[in-house]
Design a protein around this nucleic acid. Structure first.
Length: 545
RNA sequence: GCCCCCGUAGCUCAGCGGAUAGAGCAGCGGUUUCCUAAACCGUUGGUCGCAGGUUCAAUUCCUGCCGGGGGCACCA
């Protein structure tokens, strides 16, 4: 439908002497401006040197769209052309929703493209906290949006299992093991003080025996390192599994070294002439590609900086054949973005290969007071604490409600509340109500088929609901293009509001047969779209609450 | 000092360069013989941080300020 009008507009633009004019044909925010509106006449005003409203008349005269497609048009405001679609197009829209079913809202612009979405990638040095949860929800949400647009998506978790932080973890656990066995010991400067390491130490002693604490330090630390890495992985994986996030690939920093990928990365950079030696260190010329300054790759002491394995990792992603590599990073890494961009640009990768989505901090509020978290002191809110308290659905939904770049206030009381004020509840309730109609009717929604005549949907609320349902594919398209799941939550809340209003105003069961049938179709469509949206966000769509 | 993000209603936030800037909550006023009142309807409330610029058109793009947050390493 939209495509047909767009094509007609393009033809008229060409006829008027402005082929290829860039105009917009969209669903206006204000229902009083029709079903579709275009700014074509205003865009043409400048090149054709003519008044936009006069041009709009010439455009309309040249369109020649039949009355069974467009029922009415008008020229409004500074030169907008508004279109009202013929009413029987609305039944076509209803059939499109029911016909597509669980696939309604999917797109194909990504077909044939492989995309890598890397997220969470928490250091294996402690339990996942709420910030990781936001990253998990966002990364999974973006991955789902990309799948919905036809991409082949790989969800990937990068394990920073090498480097200084892991050394500290191993030393910290070793200290706890010694301590628990009655030896004098202290968690080192800059180490991890959380209670979870005391528990882990005790569990390790129980399993291995007290002799563990008497091992020579080097061996004891090595044992602790191996155990801590493994145990943290298991714990994080389990949290994520319960949270509904599954990864296809776990990439390990250690493995990158072992597989020679790090050396390969350095060779690739050197072969492009991007590196040079200075002051005993090896540098990368990132400043020529948008970074503030050049960056060190190999320090004076011969060890590599954090950048090296990370660059090697992104080279590897490119060489694995991904069209896009999307990283979800915490706000504390945002300063790192220009540097990585510079490197990949220097390597000559396409501009749209690498994209970073930043998630700002999460502020957890309970009873109107902020719940503080501090990894150092060991007092923090873990992801598990949070979703065990509010439920996985609420946690995922809340994490996705805001754009990643915005700070997020997570109101625990609101997330738990079973009232209209809680957006997850509100949206799920709308789905449950639609389901309730079929339950009372004793019918399977899928069994309701056929066409809806205009007489079968007599109320303005019927048409309003149908229109809102019709907007879903545009929302998923834009959300996928921008990689912004919060657009889905916003839409679902609008849809839920319209659906609740419709439910209240428009009876279904017991109406004249034609109306009952039309509204059952509409309820089925609404239930489908609500379910599709919730599924896309990783939330359940309950039939009753 | 430099970089990034944010600044929109009392609060939390939406708003691909378009029309009279929206929603939820809070406030005020209503609604229930009814498929879940766990709901619905109406209404009050705005210098879109400030100043320039580009444009037929700027909350949106650009520049500079102001305010809030985050980041600045041969740490990860």
């Amino acid at each position: 439908m939209t495509a047909r009008i767009r094509a007609a507009l393009e033809r008229v633009a060409a006829d008027l002497g402005a082929p290829g004019a860039e105009f917009v044909l969209e669903r206006p925010r204000d229902a009083g401006h029709g079903d579709l509106a275009t700014n074509l006449a205003m865009v043409l005003a400048r090149p054709l040197r003519q008044n936009p409203r006069q041009l709009a008349e010439r455009v309309l005269a040249g369109l020649g769209l039949p009355a069974d497609v467009v029922a009415r048009t008008e020229i409004a405001g500074p030169g907008f052309i508004n279109f009202w679609l013929a009413v029987d197009q609305l039944d076509a829209q209803l059939q499109a929703i029911l016909g597509a079913g669980a696939g309604y809202g999917r797109h194909h612009f990504g077909t044939g493209k492989r995309v890598n979405v890397e997220f969470v990638s928490a250091n294996p040095t402690g339990p996942l906290h709420v910030g990781h949860g936001r990253g998990a929800a966002l990364g999974d949400g973006i991955a789902a949006l990309l799948e919905w647009s036809g991409h082949e998506v790989v969800r990937e978790f990068y394990i920073n299992d090498a480097g200084v932080q892991i050394d500290k973890l191993a030393l910290s656990l070793w200290a706890r093991v010694r301590e628990a066995a009655g030896h004098p010991a202290a968690v080192p400067e800059g180490g991890y003080h959380g209670a979870y390491l005391q528990e882990m130490a005790q569990a390790l002693l129980d399993r291995e025996g007290a002799s563990l604490a008497g091992l020579p330090e080097a061996e004891g630390v090595a044992r602790c390192r191996a155990h801590a890495l493994q145990a943290m992985r298991v714990e994080q994986d389990e949290d994520l599994r319960v949270f509904g996030v599954r990864f296809d690939v776990h990439s390990s920093e250690q493995a990158l070294y072992h597989a020679g990928r790090v050396g390969h990365g350095l060779e690739v950079l050197a072969a492009k002439g991007l590196t040079y030696e200075s002051e005993g260190a090896l540098w990368l010329r990132t400043s020529e590609f948008g970074d503030d300054k050049d960056r060190v790759l190999r320090k004076q002491d011969g060890s590599y900086t954090y950048l090296v394995p990370d660059v090697a990792y992104h080279i590897e992603k490119f060489e694995r054949g991904f069209a896009h590599a999307i990283d979800v990073w915490g706000a504390d890494h945002h300063g790192y973005v220009p540097r990585m961009r510079a490197v990949l640009k220097a390597l000559g990768y396409p501009d749209d290969f690498f994209d970073v989505k930043i998630v700002q901090l999460v502020k957890v509020v309970r009873g109107g007071e902020e719940v503080r978290m501090s990894k150092r002191s060991g007092e923090f809110v873990t992801l598990r604490d949070l979703f065990e308290e509010v439920g996985v659905d609420a946690a995922r939904y809340f994490f996705l409600m805001r754009r990643g770049e915005s700070g997020l206030v997570f109101d625990v009381d609101l997330a738990k509340s079973q009232t209209e004020e809680n957006p997850v509840f509100y949206v799920q309730m709308a789905h449950a109500r639609m389901s309730g109609i079929f339950r009372v009717a004793g019918r399977d929604p899928v069994s309701v088929t056929g066409a809806a005549t205009p007489e079968a949907l007599p109320a303005p609320e019927d048409l309003e609901l149908l229109k809102k349902l019709g907007a879903f594919p545009e929302v998923t398209l834009r959300a996928a293009e921008e990689r912004e799941p919060h657009r889905i939550t916003g839409y679902l809340e609008e849809l839920a509001r319209v659906a609740h209003g419709w439910y209240h105003k428009c009876r279904v069961l017991g109406e004249p047969p034609a109306v009952e049938h039309g509204r059952l179709l509409l309820a089925r469509a609404a239930r489908q779209v609500l379910a599709n949206g919730l599924t896309l966000l990783g939330c359940s769509a309950p039939d009753r609450m």
